[in-house]
Design a protein around this nucleic acid. Sequence first.
DNA 1: TTGTATGCGTTATCAC
DNA 2: GTGATAACGCATACAA
Lengths: 331, 331
Amino acid sequence: MPQKVTIATVARQAGVSRQTVSNVLNAPHIVREETRQRVQEAITTLGYRTNQAARQMRTGRSRLIAVRIEPTRDGINGAVLDQFLHGLSETAGTAGYRVLLYTAADDEQEIREYDDLLGAYELDAFVLTSTTRGDPRTAWLADRGVPFVTFGRPWDDPAAHPWVDVDGADGTAQATRRLLATGHRRIGFVGWPTGSGVGDDRRLGWYHTLRAAGLDPTDLDRHTEDGIPQGEQVTRELLTAPAPPTALLCASDSLALGALQAVRAADPTIPVIGFDDTPVAAAVGLTSVRQPLREAAVRCVELLTGLLDGTPRPNPSQVLLKPHLVLRQTA
Amino acid sequence: MPQKVTIATVARQAGVSRQTVSNVLNAPHIVREETRQRVQEAITTLGYRTNQAARQMRTGRSRLIAVRIEPTRDGINGAVLDQFLHGLSETAGTAGYRVLLYTAADDEQEIREYDDLLGAYELDAFVLTSTTRGDPRTAWLADRGVPFVTFGRPWDDPAAHPWVDVDGADGTAQATRRLLATGHRRIGFVGWPTGSGVGDDRRLGWYHTLRAAGLDPTDLDRHTEDGIPQGEQVTRELLTAPAPPTALLCASDSLALGALQAVRAADPTIPVIGFDDTPVAAAVGLTSVRQPLREAAVRCVELLTGLLDGTPRPNPSQVLLKPHLVLRQTA
DNA sequence: TTGTATGCGTTATCAC
DNA sequence: GTGATAACGCATACAA
């Protein structure tokens, strides 16, 4: 068991004062090259590591980033968060930060967690996911000047704060173009009820692409809550309508899975495309739109470190990433 | 912006010394009830929170638990870790601990992370997942007396360290009994190659149950790497053998999904049961064995706090949980 | 029971 | 360019 090695140990070993060691670590440029090297050597031979707690006490910064881990909803989308978290943790690590997890059942509880995390651990920043219109959490954080980034746009005001998001409209546009290219003209959309920023965005990509192609898809637009049975139900209705679609685009893999079941019962040749490219999609051969989750995580960290370290922030503070279509058997 | 409220602020407000406040927090029993109440009141009205960094500096303990987030393998099993993480974070929170994430590509890198985490952040404990035979990580931690718990048994020596695990053999036994009860006698097993503790365990539950029923299933046992195509391939072989099985049990949902495809092509009435009850299983209606992940997480935290706080440790330090069969369309 | 003094490892301020 | 000194907020040994 090696003795605890502090800055004093290093100083003694290198024959300098503690402050000089500190300078080597925090402001290398103001220290003479020769001295710097000697200190560096001592640091590595002794295996010195700066004690975060002590540093934090002095600087008031913990080098910790908090992110909420959600209670796996319908399970299908759980893997999305998983990949994002992994990317976040890895990228943060290389930037000298660590990721702390927290849980909360609702917004109010989450805000109480912010308070606690900030008060007790002096967290440096937060990463929020699943943002909604008029999100109380972003307001709370902004009020207090706490640095944060959201994965998901603030739909009410795009410039409200730094964010990273994936261009859902572009994703559905890609999917729609693919279906158009394979000869389809009546392309249905199974989406969420109006009002959710994400859902509206995805619907718009489909709508605008068809309009631009001179088509009016209004009668092929459907709204339902997320879920496999819901997707199946709505699709069945769509397929038994007077003028049914010849292809389907869905706002999520869950809906697409349901659609797939309805389609198989009616006409298995009808293509179906989902959204999110969850493991389930890969497993059943569902063509789907994939979000660049890893890159999203990387950009979140970039934005955050920009805010925290004052490094020339990667302007702009809003990052919109393009998804891409993963072709499989169903389209 | 409220001024920083320290133990001194509270002491002044309550008209006592700082020490008394500290006592109220760390040893309430030695303080007079009346005083205690007055101090408590001051604490709540001021919104005092003990500064973790300062406490850590003094006690050498961070109240932080580290857990590795893995790079979503084939994706299907990602949701498993997800649920476990959520449970872990939540339970740890109520016990006054927080969960810190870290990543590592291999064992060697992971051990280097331990070193760093311990040196810089003075982590209190680790939760390891995906343990293997002769795991170098557990050896490293044990050597240094670092508290840790594994989710997964140490297959070489069950008493080596505290662990929580799910009884895989019991899971496959339940599944096998179910198939026996519905009249099947030739029940095939699609499992992993021999040598992995988890895989062998799951196979054994199937084998022993059939033996106990007076059957010899040796010719229906297959070994292959995990994956959907592998499952399909092996199942196809199994079904075209001279005496094919009338039902199938698989070591994972991935394998089961592959098996399902082979079965559908041959004889759709053949039941298939998977393992892990991943979201994919729920989506496609696959009967599967579910692990109590939430409870596993809770028990991990219990074991850990027992180690850390010296609370009467929930003897024994080894916890084996029972999974249960989730019946769906495929069996 | 309560108060006083001290140190944990760092960094910031200021002399040298 | 380098070194001494103070302070961050808390917990503990010890004295009152």
